[in-house]
Simulated scan of single mutants.
Amino acid sequence: MEEYDHILVESFITHERGKHGLVHIRPLPNQEPYTTDMYVQCSKTMSNDFPVGTKFRIKAKIIYPENKKPFVSTHYTWKYEVLKD
């Protein structure tokens, strides 16, 4: 069985070329090897149904695709926790 970690992520606005949509999810700082320049593949409800800047706790792992930038992945059907400030 593959190892997953519980990490903290947030929604944010990106203008990076090639990304679909304006709002995406990224890890919060100080969670190495999860870094803030990684994108999170997750349920679209996290980016569509909550205000930008919302923080979540998810269960995830890093995916290392060949010849592409690593990204964070959690299954879109898995539960996530919405964090309060």
Rank of each mutant, 00 (worst) to 15 (best):
E2Y: 10
E2L: 09
Y4I: 03
Y4W: 02
H6M: 09
I7D: 07
I7M: 09
I7T: 11
I7P: 09
L8W: 08
L8D: 10
L8Y: 14
E10L: 04
S11N: 02
F12W: 08
F12M: 05
I13K: 15
H15G: 07
E16A: 15
E16W: 11
E16H: 14
R17N: 14
G18W: 13
G18L: 10
G18H: 13
K19F: 13
K19P: 04
G21T: 06
L22P: 09
V23K: 03
H24L: 11
I25C: 13
I25F: 05
P27S: 02
P27V: 01
P29L: 01
P29N: 03
Q31K: 11
Q31M: 05
E32F: 10
P33T: 09
P33Y: 08
Y34K: 15
Y34I: 11
Y34G: 06
Y34V: 11
D37T: 15
M38P: 01
Y39V: 06
Q41T: 10
Q41E: 10
C42I: 01
C42H: 02
S43G: 08
K44Q: 09
K44P: 04
K44C: 04
T45K: 13
T45R: 13
T45I: 06
M46V: 05
M46N: 07
S47K: 06
S47I: 00
S47W: 00
S47N: 08
S47C: 05
D49C: 07
F50Q: 00
P51F: 07
P51Y: 09
V52T: 15
G53M: 04
G53K: 06
T54F: 07
T54R: 08
F56T: 04
R57A: 03
R57K: 13
I58T: 12
K59L: 02
A60M: 08
K61Y: 08
K61Q: 08
I62V: 11
I62E: 07
Y64I: 06
P65C: 05
P65A: 05
P65V: 04
E66Q: 12
N67E: 13
N67S: 14
F71P: 00
F71D: 00
F71M: 01
V72S: 01
V72Q: 01
V72L: 01
V72G: 00
S73T: 15
S73A: 13
H75F: 14
Y76I: 10
Y76W: 12
Y76Q: 12
W78F: 08
E81L: 06
V82N: 03
L83A: 01
L83S: 02
L83N: 01
K84L: 03
K84C: 01
D85A: 15
